[in-house]
């Protein structure tokens, strides 16, 4: 049977009391890709992941994993490795004992443990009690645990929290390797863009429970959506005209910032001349993914205000 998407949610929502934490999310994750879920704290990423791992029941909507509808106590979960929120362990047991318990729950050979402990660089600490572990080491152990059983899907909630820069790089490379060598599909979340943009194939932007936009990383990087910062003489006289001619992002002092996606500098100048807007100076700004994200969030907030 051909599996179209590894994860497919339809109008997935979650309410706690009167608060809608996840709102009508339609998430689609292709097999063998890394999908990065990006959003501020409280955007609903963790709740979404909890629903995908059966820890929370959706208030509305449906989830399909590997093409099959997900229900509580589903056997599908045996093919999923997950790390939700800060990884927790039996702190009075050693790292190896903790993994052993997980191996037994997942019914996989104990010999698998060594591979993952080595892969995450904590094999030499295997006999240490987890209560002696630093946050970074716990994070590594949590990742090792999620890899047990070689799952087809990995769901990782902020997996790089607490890691040092070299650790972050190492984990990023590991995730890419898992995708390339084993075809593992990975859904990871973060509120830090930099963590995601270096490894994800697709980025989904979440804001206040809504999956606002989905973009392929190639699309985002190639496009490098540009902004033009134009200093205008007598700006207040031309505001309305500018808004008609350009997609205005910001206005301050004598300057207007316009989105110029698909618009060359020559074209921009031509439009100014045609509309008799006197320009003092113009700068082309390349917009980073971060700028794009911030702009998008600002747009959403503005929309809410209206």
């Amino acid at each position: 049977m051909r599996v179209g998407y590894i994860i497919e949610t339809t109008s997935l929502s979650k309410q706690y009391g009167h608060e809608t934490v996840v709102n009508q999310v339609n998430l689609k994750v292709q097999p063998g890709t890394i999908y990065g879920l990006l959003g501020e704290n409280g955007a609903g990423k963790t709740t979404l992941m909890k629903m995908l791992t059966t820890l929370a029941l959706p208030t509305q909507g449906a989830i399909k994993l590997f093409g099959t509808t997900l229900e509580r106590n589903s056997d599908l979960m045996s093919e999923v490795g997950a790390m939700i929120e800060t990884p927790v362990f039996y702190s009075s047991l050693s790292a190896e004992e903790n993994l052993m318990i997980h191996c037994r729950y997942k019914k996989v050979p104990l010999s698998d443990m060594k591979e993952y402990l080595e892969m995450l660089g904590i094999y030499k600490h295997r006999d240490k009690k987890v209560k002696q572990f630093s946050l970074g080491m716990k994070q590594r152990l949590g990742l090792a645990r999620s890899l047990i059983g070689n799952p087809r899907l990995l769901i990782l909630d902020e997996p790089i929290n607490g890691l040092d820069p070299s650790g972050i790089k190492e984990i990023r490379e590991l995730l890419i390797r898992l995708k390339k060598e084993r075809g593992t599909t990975i859904l990871l979340s973060s509120h830090i863009l930099n963590e995601i943009e270096h490894c994800a194939d697709t980025i989904g932007f979440m804001h206040k429970g809504v999956l606002c936009k989905e973009k392929g990383i190639g699309e985002l990087q190639d496009a490098e959506i540009r902004l033009y910062e134009i200093k205008i003489k007598h700006l207040d006289l031309h505001v309305e005209k500018l808004k008609k001619v350009f997609e205005v992002v910001n206005i301050y002092h004598q300057t207007v910032v316009v989105s110029a996606a698909g618009l060359t500098a020559t074209e921009a100048i031509k439009r100014l001349i045609e509309n008799e807007i006197e320009m003092i100076e113009m700068k082309a700004l390349t917009e980073s993914l971060e700028d794009y994200y911030m702009t998008m969030i600002a747009e959403r907030k503005e929309g809410e205000a209206i």
């Binding site: 791992t53 059966t54 820890l55 106590n73 589903s74 056997d75 599908l76 979960m77 045996s78 999923v80 997950a82 939700i84 929120e85 990884p87 927790v88 362990f89 039996y90 702190s91 997980h102 729950y105 997942k106 645990r145």
Partner: peptide, 12 residues
Amino acid sequence: NKTITTIWASGI
């Protein structure tokens, strides 16, 4: 301690 979440998320 939320250790139960890891067990439940593994399909038990």
